[in-house]
């Protein structure tokens, strides 16, 4: 159980998909203008991630290595279609505000990245918790960023007015504000981790495929 909890926590902080692995930023920047949109996107992605991780992990011994990516995409696309239909049926307003980014979960690098890096090599239970951790990590970040952006940019939270009209900073709701908030969030997480004494190792250039990697690396032993 300890291991499962570690996998879950891994996605939340140490390997946070958005702020540390820097995956799936496109949707974070685009959808984080309102809290409702950000939260909805996070939940949708978490659902897809958990389901696709579990199914891919179940089928990991069946899927031929040469055609694995198309197989993952088919599985992911199935769940995304499911989510899309549910959201369209029950939350049409959210469907409108998420727009194309809901369908784009199919090609979200977090989902495909976890399928390739984790679910295809680990047991069903581990993959479930990895998907849950990564999804919650994503949800946490996108919700946090969208709280800041909606509060400062539009003066509202969940559509309720908090800051009176006339004191909004318009640029925060626009792309530059998105990048700026994103950068600040990243800096805060890295600073917090540095303060806790954890060495920050930027995971640049490493896809996590330790088994097929010949290079010497301090992370390698830890994974084994």
């Amino acid at each position: 159980m300890k291991r499962k909890l570690d996998i879950l926590k891994n996605g939340l902080f140490k390997e946070n998909p958005v702020l540390i692995l820097v995956l799936g930023c496109c949707s974070v920047l685009a959808v984080s203008v309102t809290v409702l949109g950000g939260l909805g996107m996070g939940i949708a992605l978490t659902f897809v991630l958990v389901c696709s991780n579990v199914v891919i992990s179940l089928l990991r011994k069946v899927i031929p290595d040469k055609v694995r990516i198309p197989c993952y995409i088919v599985i992911i696309a199935a769940f995304v279609t499911l989510v899309e239909m549910i959201v369209k049926a029950f939350l049409p307003a959210l469907y409108e505000s998420l727009g194309v980014f809901l369908s784009l979960i199919v090609v979200n690098c977090i989902v495909l990245g976890r399928a390739e890096m984790f679910a295809s090599k680990n047991t069903v239970g581990d993959s479930f918790f990895d998907g849950l951790g990564m999804g919650l990590g994503y949800t946490m970040v996108i919700t946090g960023i969208s709280i800041v952006r909606e509060l400062l940019g539009s003066g509202t939270l969940f559509g309720l007015r908090i800051i009176p009209e006339g004191f909004q900073i318009g640029i925060i709701t626009q792309p530059p504000g998105g990048f700026f908030t994103f950068g600040c969030a990243m800096a805060i997480l890295v600073a917090a981790m540095a303060k806790k004494g954890k060495k920050f190792v930027p995971p640049v250039g490493c896809g996590g495929d330790c088994a097929g990697c010949g290079a010497a690396c301090q992370e390698k032993e830890a994974v084994k």
Binding site: I169, G170, I171, I172, Q174, P176
Partner: peptide, 8 residues
């Protein structure tokens, strides 16, 4: 420019 975009 930031002010211009924010408080046009």
């Amino acid at each position: 420019i930031i002010l211009f975009v924010s408080f046009t």
